[in-house]
Write a protein that binds this DNA or RNA. Sequence first.
DNA 1: TCAATTATTTGCCAAATGACAAATGAAATG
DNA 2: CATTTCATTTGTCATTTGGCAAATAATTGA
Lengths: 188, 188
Amino acid sequence: MEELINYLLQFGQLNQQQIDLVKSKIKIIELRKDAYFSEAGKIAKQVAFIADGILRVCYYNNKGEEITRYFIDENNFAVDINSFSTEIPSSEYIQAITDCTLFVFSRESLAELSQTIIGFDGIVNQITTKSLIEKVKRISPMLAEDAKVRYLNFLENFPKLANRIPLSLLASYLGITQSSLSRIRRNI
Amino acid sequence: MEELINYLLQFGQLNQQQIDLVKSKIKIIELRKDAYFSEAGKIAKQVAFIADGILRVCYYNNKGEEITRYFIDENNFAVDINSFSTEIPSSEYIQAITDCTLFVFSRESLAELSQTIIGFDGIVNQITTKSLIEKVKRISPMLAEDAKVRYLNFLENFPKLANRIPLSLLASYLGITQSSLSRIRRNI
DNA sequence: TCAATTATTTGCCAAATGACAAATGAAATG
DNA sequence: CATTTCATTTGTCATTTGGCAAATAATTGA
């Protein structure tokens, strides 16, 4: 749980009392591989900090194909920010692709922390903005590159993730078929 | 300038005095086609609300090719949020692709508004978050679709923009060559 | 208006990727 | 250990897209 606290402290100060208060709001959840953390059609009510495991964000297109948009691994927050902030039902899923241990905050817990801890909103805002900027930076350049370069970039940026993610999901994330990714991998 | 104020009022309340204060901080800038609003290597010091015209965000890859990442048109904010918020030199350009009229806030102006107007930070945070979420939603699904579908989606989502953007830039945004886009267009 | 410049279209061929099916490999289960 | 299930690789062929050059169209500026 120290990882989570350290993460927060990057963005603002918290005294021991405040840290304890934050900790008291955490609910620890174990998610089995393939289980959903949040689902399309439902309103996201929780924010998770991943203590262990990998989640992915995915959706289904109009051909029924499953598209993986994003992976999130240890020591990062996972939330359907759109649904969580607007309270509109989500259009995508957040799913465990390995067994996961999550530190979960409910909407109510966060509201209480927001009211009790001066500066908590600021920390949350910074984390939100930073995460979204990173996401844009990660995804945005991909269109301009061919599949091989996208794969190599992924390996470079997330060397530890590559072995832990099934080929099919990685291919979907890269925007190619798993056959193509398999062939690309052979040619390296 | 009413457009800008209305835009802000969507995210929070401002009384007439506060509105006047906001207006007093605005600097009106005319940008000629091809001129830069912000440049790679420099720290973004301004935020623009586009009163008229279209901007694009672009960068150069390691082959020297120019990649267009994003278009921004009237009644939207444009800023290199990464550079502006971290004060780290940017790696991309924001360029006018038509003659533009911009309402510009400097970092100092925003800081003053932040200190003077209760709730101004909240408005700014909401706009920032909402803009980033929209950006992710716009870009993220593109990888999973072929070029023709990407083009059709663009037409559907931004019907007015298509005629105002040169083919070459739109092709770059869609991640294909202009020849390919030209062919795709013919087949529709 | 005409020339010069820039933007777009087209043709040709090569390379990349998709679609589908089959083969192989790896992991889980009884 | 054998079997089943799932993941990955491979083969074949069709389609898409890129790269390059040339042709055509549109725009700009003297």
